[in-house]
Design a protein around this nucleic acid. Structure first.
Length: 270
DNA sequence: CCAAGGCCTGAATG
DNA sequence: ACATTCAGGCCTT
């Protein structure tokens, strides 16, 4: 392998497999060493090496982030440093907000397999379209009790109650509060939407996995009393993680999550 | 039958 | 009266 100048290499460094398989995107499929995926109104075709001149890809991969600097800032901690070393090319993607919003509502209390198995290779529906589909039609996709959530959420976007452009400009907490008004969105789902599509890198989705990770490696730093997360403990824990990890806490979460998932899968197989 | 990448509801605590 | 917590249910694989 030829060595690239380290600065250039780091800025555009991407490991596609690791990035796509890190629980942040759903509608992607790999065929003949190329990844095909849906992002809102776009179909993206990605080779291992991204096209940095392509604006869609540039935005999608968040190439404007100083990735090198982010990783450097997060590497003060041994656990995180190892996770970053193991997956140095894993990026946080900037997804189409509406797709991200609906996807994570659907993902709640569902399992990974069923989310990823969707053979959906249509463009993602527009809010208006989805807002006017009947709940029973939505349910035909196998969404169960979440069908109602999806419909209501689509309506909220269609009637302007939820405006992604505005949310992007708002402060983290304000944007999160707005999202949590939507039926079917709690703090965890809101944080996913904020981190993966609305540029809030301080959002830290605290799901069961992350909670377990924090208990396992950071019991000293974050004293965690409860087994499950309640409204209030979610906020307390979020504040602690941002205090500790800093402004890029969302990236920290992503590296830790990926690392732990990968280790546990290996254990399973081996 | 159980667990799984939450959320909502209603009732019980302080 | 108020804020929090708790238990149970929920669709699907």
């Amino acid at each position: 392998m030829k060595k690239l100048p380290s600065k250039l290499k780091d800025k555009f460094e991407v490991n596609l497999d690791d990035t796509i398989n890190s629980g942040q995107v759903f509608l992607w499929k790999k065929t003949n060493s190329k990844w095909y995926g849906i992002n809102g109104k776009s179909i993206l075709t990605l080779r291992e090496k991204p096209d940095t001149k392509n604006k869609k890809q540039y935005d999608f991969f968040r190439f404007e982030d100083d990735f090198q600097e982010i990783k450097r800032k997060l590497s003060k901690d041994e656990v995180l440093r190892k996770a970053i070393e193991r997956f140095p090319g894993m990026r946080i993607l900037r997804q189409d907000p509406f797709q991200c919003y609906i996807s994570f509502i659907v993902s709640s209390n569902s399992n990974k397999k069923r989310i990823k198995n969707g053979q959906v290779f249509f463009l993602f529906p527009e809010p208006e379209r989805l807002a006017n589909v009947s709940i029973s039609d939505i349910a035909k996709c196998g969404l169960g009790y979440r069908s109602k959530y999806v419909k209501k959420a689509a309506i909220a976007v269609n009637d302007g109650t939820i405006n992604f452009t505005k949310l992007k400009k708002q402060r983290y907490y304000d944007a999160r509060d707005s999202l949590c008004q939507v039926f079917g969105i709690g703090k965890k789902v809101a944080d996913c939407i904020l981190l993966f599509s609305l540029d809030k890198l301080e959002a830290v989705p605290l799901d069961r996995w992350v909670l377990r990770i924090l208990q396992k490696y950071y019991s000293r730093e974050f004293e965690i009393k409860t087994k499950s997360i309640t409204e209030k403990t979610y906020d307390e824990l979020h504040e602690k993680t941002v205090d500790y990890f800093g402004e890029y806490a969302g990236y920290a979460q992503q590296f830790l999550f990926k690392n732990e998932r990968e280790s546990s899968e290996k254990k399973w197989l081996g």
